[in-house]
């Protein structure tokens, strides 16, 4: 598999004399992979995300995006075009007064011809299933819809990779589901590489791989079942597990023979049906 993003011995310090925000991060994210990054506040997740598209440059070590070193000033716009970023607050990311103009903002700045921009805007809005909102005002949309507009704006830049920093933190359950379904669809159908930073464990379990961070370091890494079966470890760093995983853990501790790596409701129903 070819790598989309490589981090090699990355350290990051916000300013001299402060603690390292990231310590010796080594990481490879493959093309087409869906990776979730979890960790308590202040663990370095967002810092890492900002290093992935060159908003920050490592204090020590290197980040490569599709082979380009982010520290290389000439390549920075290429890096950002390859790895697009979506942030937490949809209201801070929308710049235009009409949805389609907002989506066109990125490609316009890349100097792309108008006919091509139109095609990209159309495709991007189709991909996030908001075509019928093309002429609406963004502020009239729901949180989940606004966040999908933000994703469409990134898609119009034709990135290979989309980095999302807690995109659902400010949304209600319906909006959260819309955004996660959109992300999964882009990963599955358009083979976009996805890096999702989240505090919601039910979102992280849907990724191919989960990376848990604490105090600037990667402390756990693996498939969702590998990571979430370490219930006590996750709790010790202030994280959570889905309720069904917690239940399996508690039943196991009570001497019941049950898999410790149950992640979803459906799996748990099957497991319990065998026991009961």
């Amino acid at each position: 598999m070819t790598a989309e993003i490589i981090a090699r011995g990355v350290h990051y310090q916000y300013s001299q004399g402060t603690d390292l925000a990231l310590k010796n991060i080594n990481l490879k994210i493959n093309k087409g992979e869906f990776v979730a990054i979890i960790g308590p506040n202040g663990s370095g997740k967002s810092t890492l995300a900002k290093l992935f598209n060159g908003i920050f440059i490592p204090t020590k070590g290197e980040i490569y995006v599709d082979g380009l070193n982010t520290a290389n000033k000439e390549d920075i716009w290429k890096v950002r075009q390859k790895a697009g970023m979506v942030f937490q607050n949809p209201d801070n990311q929308i710049v235009a007064t009409v949805v389609e103009e907002d989506v066109a903002f990125g490609p316009e700045n890349l100097g792309i011809p108008p006919a091509e921009i139109r095609r990209r805007v159309k495709e991007s809005l189709e991909a996030v299933e908001l075509s019928e909102f093309a002429h609406k005002a963004p502020h009239m949309l729901s949180g989940g819809q606004k966040q999908r507009v933000a994703i469409a704006g990134i898609l119009a830049m034709r990135p290979q990779c989309i980095i999302l920093d807690e995109p659902t933190a400010m949304l209600d359950p319906v909006g959260r589901k819309e955004v996660i379904d959109t992300i999964k669809k882009l990963n599955r159908e358009e083979a976009k590489t996805i890096v999702l930073i989240t505090h919601f464990m039910d979102e992280a379990v849907q990724a191919d791989r989960v990376i848990a961070m604490e105090k600037g370091q990667i402390v756990l890494e693996g498939t969702p079942s590998q990571v979430f079966s370490k219930v006590d470890r996750l709790k010790s760093i202030g994280l959570d597990v889905p309720q069904v995983t917690e239940l399996a853990h508690q039943l196991k501790n009570a001497g019941i023979g049950i898999r410790p790596d149950v992640l979803t409701l459906e799996e748990m129903v099957d497991c319990l049906c065998q026991l009961l």
Partner: peptide, 22 residues
């Protein structure tokens, strides 16, 4: 109504639907 219930509550209700006595 677009609302959910706690995952754990849903689990138990599903087990009941499958005829389990919980």
């Amino acid at each position: 109504m677009g609302l959910g219930i706690p995952q754990i509550t849903e689990l138990m209700l599903r087990l009941r639907e499958k005829g389990k006595n919980v």
